[in-house]
Design a binder for these strands. Structure first.
Lengths: 130, 130
DNA sequence: CAGCATCCAAAAGGATACTG
DNA sequence: CAGTATCCTTTTGGATGCTG
C-alpha cells in the first residue's frame, strides 16, 4: 500500500483529502460511484419507487445487487425505506434531504455524460483505427 | 437480463437513456465512475503529471490499475499521453479539452462529497446503533 | 522511468430457489 | 411483493518479475 509514500499532495481537494485511501470522503465517493449507486440515486430523483419498479427500470441489475445497494444507500442516509404494513407489504424508497442534495450536485455531471457520450464513443473509434 | 421487461422509463434522463444497459452513455458513466476514474481525472485537474507522480499521489492504486485506467481514459479521449523521447523516456498525462469539460462538470459533485462525507459517516453510525 | 505479462487471491456479481 | 440464502462465475485487483 502506497499510503506512506506520499508525494506532496495538492491542497485543492479542500483540506480533507480523498486521494488518501484512509479518508472518509474516499469511502463515500466509492459508494456513490460504485456500479449502481448513481443509477439508483438518479432513478429516485423524481419521487419514491418500489423495489420492483426499480428493478424494472434499471437495466441489468440483479435482485441481489439492487437490495445490497439499496441497503448501503439507506445506511449512508441518502435513501429512506418505508414499509406500509399491508398484505403483501408495500415497500418504497425515496431520497432523503441529504440524498436530494447529492442528486442536485450530480446533475451537471450527468448532463455532461449525456451530452458528450457521443464524443467519447467517437474518440474510441478514432483511437481503435490506429 | 431485464432489458426487454421495461417499465415505462422516465423521459427525464434526457432522451437517450442511461438506464438502458445498451445505451452508450451507460458505458461512459461506468468508465468515469469506475473505482479509479474520478480520482485520476481529479488528480490531473491542475496540470500534467507523470506516471510515477500519479502513482504516488493516489493512495492504494497499483501500477496495473493505474496503467489500465490511464489507457482507458486515453482511449476515451479524456486524457492525452505525451512521450518526450529522452533516456529514460519521460511520459506525462494531461486532460484533453473534453476531459477538462468533464472535470468542470464533476466539480459540484466533488465539492458535495467533501462537504457532506461527515454527514454520511454520522448517518452510518446512527444506523449501526440500532 | 514507464510500463506490460503472468499468476493468483479476493471481491463483485448473477441465477436460482426459497421465505414471510 | 420484497426480499434473503446459496452457489457459482466473472471481474477486479495486487504482487512479482521482466523489458526498452
Amino acid at each position: 500500500m502506497t499510503v506512506g509514500s506520499h508525494v506532496a499532495r495538492p491542497e485543492w481537494w479542500g483540506g480533507s483529502d480523498a486521494f488518501d485511501i484512509e479518508c472518509p470522503a474516499r469511502e463515500v465517493l466509492d459508494h456513490i460511484t460504485g456500479r449502481w449507486g448513481v443509477l439508483l440515486l438518479t432513478a429516485l430523483e423524481h419521487g419514491p419507487l418500489r423495489f420492483s419498479e426499480l428493478r424494472a427500470m434499471i437495466g441489468g441489475i440483479s435482485e441481489k445487487m439492487l437490495s445490497q445497494t439499496l441497503r448501503m444507500l439507506v445506511r449512508d442516509g441518502l435513501v429512506a425505506r418505508t414499509v406500509e404494513p399491508t398484505t403483501p407489504p408495500r415497500v418504497s424508497y425515496e431520497l432523503t434531504a441529504l440524498g436530494r442534495g447529492l442528486t442536485d450536485a450530480l446533475r451537471t455531471f450527468l448532463n455532461w455524460v449525456h451530452r458528450h457520450s457521443a464524443d467519447v464513443m467517437a474518440a474510441q473509434r478514432e483511437h481503435d483505427r490506429q
